[in-house]
Simulated scan of single mutants.
Amino acid sequence: MAKIVVVGGTGLIGSKVVRKLTEHGHTAIAASPATGVNTVTGEGLAEVLAQVDTVVDVSNSPSFAPDDVREFFRTSTTNLLAAEKDAGVTHHVALTIVGTNRPQEIPYFAAKAAQEQLIRSSGTPFTLVHATQFFEFLGSIADSSTDGQTVRLPGGLVQPIAAEDVATAVARAAAGAPAGDIEIAGPEAFGLDEFVRRGLAFRGDPRTVVRDDDAPYYGARIAERTLVPLEGAQLFPTRLEEWLPANPPRA
C-alpha cells in the first residue's frame, strides 16, 4: 500500500480523503499548518514528504481576495512541487475546478488555472481532479449574492457535487496511477439560481432568489455552460434532494 501525504488534510475535503485512504489500507498523513506543515513558508515540507509515494493537494487560500488567492497558489504550489522533486514523489494529485480552461474572468479560476500550469510543467506525473461546485457552498453562494432579502444569481448551469463524493474521487485518484486531467460532477444540472432557490426553500430561508444573467458569480459573469463538465466526466450519485435533509445549515 502507498504512503500518501494529503496537503490540506484537516479541512472539509482533506479530512475525508485521509479517512477514505486509511480505510483502504494506505498510510495517509494529514498535512496542514495545524500539523506543522506550511506550504507557503515551506515549514515541515521536507520532513513530511520523506519516503512518500503520492502527494494530494486539496489546500485552499485563507483569503479569497484575487491577489491573495493568486499568490497563495503560486507560492504554495511552487514550494510543494520543489519539495516533492527533492523527495522523489512519483504522483501529484490536485483538486481543482471544472471551467478553469474555458473563457471566463473569475479571479479564483484564474489562480487555479495558474496552479494547474505549474503542475503540468513540473515534470512530476500528475492527476488534476476538476470538480464542479460543491453542495456545501450553497449557503455561501447565496450570502455573497444577497441584497436585503433578494438573492440575484445568473441562470448559467451548474452540476453540483457532494463533498463526500469529491473526496471519493480524490482518494481513488491518489490510490491509482497518474491520469492527467479528469472531471467529476454530480448527477443533475440546474440553473445556478434554481440550485440556490431549491436549497433555500428546503431550509425555510425567507430570501427570494431572482434570476439575473448579468449578476456576477464570484466576481464575473458566466456563460450558460462555464460551470458544467464536458462529455466523459465521472458522475457521482448523490442528488440535491438526498443531500439537503442530511446537511442542515450550520448554526
Results as ranks from 00 to 15, higher is better:
R239P: 13
R239H: 15
N247S: 11
P160C: 05
A179M: 12
T146Q: 15
D147P: 12
T10V: 07
I119H: 06
K112G: 15
P62R: 01
E71L: 06
P33I: 07
L80N: 10
S121Y: 04
I141P: 05
V17C: 06
V6H: 03
Q234W: 15
L244T: 04
A220N: 02
K3I: 02
L49Y: 09
Q115L: 05
R198I: 07
F73Q: 11
I222R: 06
P245A: 12
E136W: 04
E164P: 13
P206I: 02
K16E: 08
E43Y: 15
A215T: 08
E71A: 13
E164S: 09
R120Y: 10
L95Y: 00
V196N: 05
P249R: 15
G14C: 07
I182Y: 00
V37E: 01
L45Q: 08
S76L: 13
I97G: 14
G156T: 02
I184S: 12
I106P: 00
A220S: 07
T132D: 06
A83P: 11
A87K: 01
T226K: 11
L153C: 09
E116K: 00
D181L: 08
A251N: 15
A175M: 13
A31G: 02
F202L: 13
D181R: 13
A171W: 03
T78I: 08
G25H: 11
S61I: 14
S59N: 05
R250C: 12
E43K: 14
P33F: 04
Q104L: 02
I97M: 03
T124K: 10
S63F: 10
A171R: 10
F64Y: 10
I184R: 07
G204P: 04
I161A: 05
Q51E: 14
G219M: 05
E194H: 10
A169E: 03
S32E: 09
K16N: 06
V170Y: 03
A220R: 07
V151S: 04
I141K: 01
T54E: 00
D193V: 11
H92D: 09
P187R: 00
R102Y: 00
A65V: 04
L80R: 06
L138T: 03
V48E: 09
V129G: 03
D165F: 04
F126T: 13
T77Q: 03
H130Q: 07
H26D: 03
K20F: 11
R120F: 14
D68Q: 12
A163R: 02
R102K: 09
A179D: 09
S15D: 10
V210C: 00
A201N: 06
P245W: 00
Y217N: 15
N247G: 14
E47R: 11
L240K: 08
I29C: 05
V170W: 01
A50E: 15
Q159R: 11
T39F: 07
F72L: 09
T77V: 13
F190T: 09
T127L: 00
D53T: 06
S15I: 10
V89P: 02
L49D: 14
V129T: 02
W243Q: 04
A233Q: 08
L192K: 05
N101M: 06
A174Y: 04
T208Q: 13
P33D: 08
E241W: 01
G155V: 13
P245E: 10
G219H: 12
T27C: 05
G44Q: 08
F190V: 07
V209L: 11
V52M: 10
V52F: 06
F135A: 00
G219E: 04
R120K: 11
